[in-house]
Design a protein around this nucleic acid. Structure first.
Lengths: 128, 128
DNA sequence: CTTTTTGCAAAACCTTTGCACAACC
DNA sequence: GGTTGTGCAAAGGTTTTGCAAAAAG
């Protein structure tokens, strides 16, 4: 529980994320927030994204391509990763998962606290 | 479908992976194969691990911590990631998943070809 | 002899960090 | 005034790559 003071840069980062339905990387956030804060640094963007994610105000999404993505929508939902173009998007259809309900169970002595599922394939745009 | 010639280094890498039940990183493979090939380079290890993964002879496992892991066991099974020590291990108990059976379906115009699920929590060793 | 693989080193890539100064409260 | 946040630049960690020499077929 870190103590936080207000910062205009952090607000701008939050505002930008709010406008996006995809899941921008830190660098994309940086490129966009630069129009309002020409001198903002990538380091500041990372520090704020990490802080906001730690506070639970945004979600950090890692689909295994080595880049962190961030999402204003913190409600639990599945993601779809296009193997051709790399886009990451929400899956709106409710995907039933037996993995839900595993929380708190122990398997082989390991306590399960959560799980991550994502689907991959070819996105609508790449299928054309 | 790359053309491949035999290489002793690649065989050694494969042999090492075969002996491991955990999911070594490229660097751990490198450290171990060095005993047989003192002059082998990390680059060679990466090239071979990627080649073997592309050929489907080993599995590449990415749990979102920014490091690639490799597994001799290519059959579908779930993984457990310890949030404290970072260990990655197989879940032997069969975890029923509704995500199976999604392959081939289309959602929002996106063709689903596969999915990844991993569980995280505290491992038996860290719970002591 | 031709193609693939290797070793080495450098580069690429993403992310974190140290520090002095500015902003916040 | 004390604390947190910022900008800058440097460093950190992982993975990829260019190239000449070696190995494989």
């Amino acid at each position: 529980m870190p103590v936080t003071k207000y910062s205009r840069q952090r607000e701008a980062i939050m505002d930008f994320l709010m406008t996006r339905r995809d899941h921008p990387t830190a660098d994309i956030v940086y490129q966009n927030v630069k129009s309002a804060f020409p001198h903002i640094s990538l380091g500041t963007v990372y520090r704020n994204l990490n802080l906001l994610a730690d506070l639970g105000r945004i979600a950090r999404i890692r689909v295994g391509d080595g880049v962190d993505r961030f999402d204003y929508n913190t409600t639990l939902h599945c993601h779809f990763v296009c193997r051709k173009c790399g886009r990451v998007m929400d899956l709106h259809t409710d995907v039933p998962s037996m993995a839900n309900g595993m929380e708190g169970r122990s398997i082989d002595g390991n306590l399960i606290e959560g799980h991550v599922t994502y689907f991959y394939g070819s996105c609508s745009r790449c299928l054309l």
